[in-house]
Simulated assay, not measured.
Amino acid sequence: MGGCKNQGPSYDCCEYDITVFDGKKQKESFIEFDGAFYHIYHGTLQETSPDILLQYDGMTILLDEQWELRMLLSKIKEKKEQIFNAYIKSCLVEAGVCITKTKNGLNTDPYSSSWLKCAAYFLADAVSVLNFHRPSPVHMLKILREFDKNKINELISPITESIGIERATPSLLSRMLKSTKGFSDLVEDNFHSKMISQKYRYMIDNSLFSDCYFYLGYINRNNFIKIPDLHRKPELIHMLKTGFDLESDTTKIESEANKLHQATNSLLSLSHE
């Protein structure tokens, strides 16, 4: 078992993350049982991807008769710094790619502002892991705000400004929720939207508006980057305009892209110090 229920902080709305190491290439799924949600993943003991190994770090073992999982977790612990560094590098590369797509498509690509949002979230992921915190979308904004002040964490403000958290209002979040759920059903088709609704309700009830905005955008980022041949699906922009709360002013988009480009270069430099 991983996730925030295993390694806090955790809210009542959070699900239990369960990974079954059966080597199957099945999509993740969601199960609701006795009032609780379970997020089911399928894993392999031969995993090499840093973003997945990062999630395995610190897992609680529920069943491991052959001690194979214990061996994997031991190796992850030994190579934790390497795994974290590889993940950070991957996030910064992805951010750079997204920024390039934003700039190149300013007047031609309907998804240019979507790529800008993706870049900001990849940078947020990088900053989180540079502070040795596993990305956790519901809690991430709160955690980012609590990091000690230093050169790396000074970049959190421009990143969250690009995401747009200051625009969060209950009415906007309600519209974002509908689009986010619809986009999730379209891309994932695994009842994740029920989990999204539960987390949304919790955050709205607890006046965590900026956190909710950050969370919904993060989910949309994760689903957006899964879509192949985006240029053949221009109709999705109508869903993303609301789900991502996209900016339409190309001058502002370009300005934000330049700001994130500087942040990416700064993080690349600081991550090697």
Rank of each mutant, 00 (worst) to 15 (best):
L62P: 05
L69T: 11
L62Q: 10
T169Q: 05
Y111G: 03
I143F: 06
D185E: 15
K75T: 11
K89Q: 14
A124Y: 06
Y121S: 06
K103L: 12
V97D: 09
S171K: 10
N107Q: 09
V138L: 06
A124C: 06
L62E: 13
S174F: 10
S74E: 11
H133V: 08
T180V: 14
A86L: 12
T169A: 10
M140A: 08
T180D: 02
N153V: 03
K101A: 05
N104L: 13
G58S: 08
L130M: 15
K117E: 07
N104Q: 14
L155N: 14
L62D: 05
S174A: 14
N85K: 15
K151I: 01
K181H: 07
N153I: 03
S112A: 10
V138H: 05
L116W: 01
D64I: 13
G182C: 08
L130C: 13
Q66C: 02
L141H: 05
F132Q: 14
P158V: 06
I159G: 04
R70D: 11
E94G: 06
S193R: 04
E81W: 05
N131M: 10
R175Y: 04
N107K: 09
Y121E: 10
A119Q: 04
V93R: 08
K181C: 15
K142N: 13
I163W: 07
E65G: 04
T102M: 02
L62N: 01
E65C: 01
K101T: 02
T169P: 04
I76W: 02
G182L: 11
R175I: 00
D189N: 15
T160A: 03
L62V: 14
F183K: 02
W115F: 15
V93E: 08
M140S: 07
R145P: 00
T102W: 08
G164P: 00
R145K: 14
K117M: 11
I156F: 02
F147P: 06
H139Q: 13
R175G: 11
D185Q: 15
L63M: 13
F147T: 03
R145M: 11
L172A: 04
I99S: 01
L116P: 07
I163R: 11
A120H: 03
G58N: 08
K151M: 06
A120K: 00
T108M: 06
K117I: 15
A119D: 01
A95P: 01
K77H: 12
I61T: 13
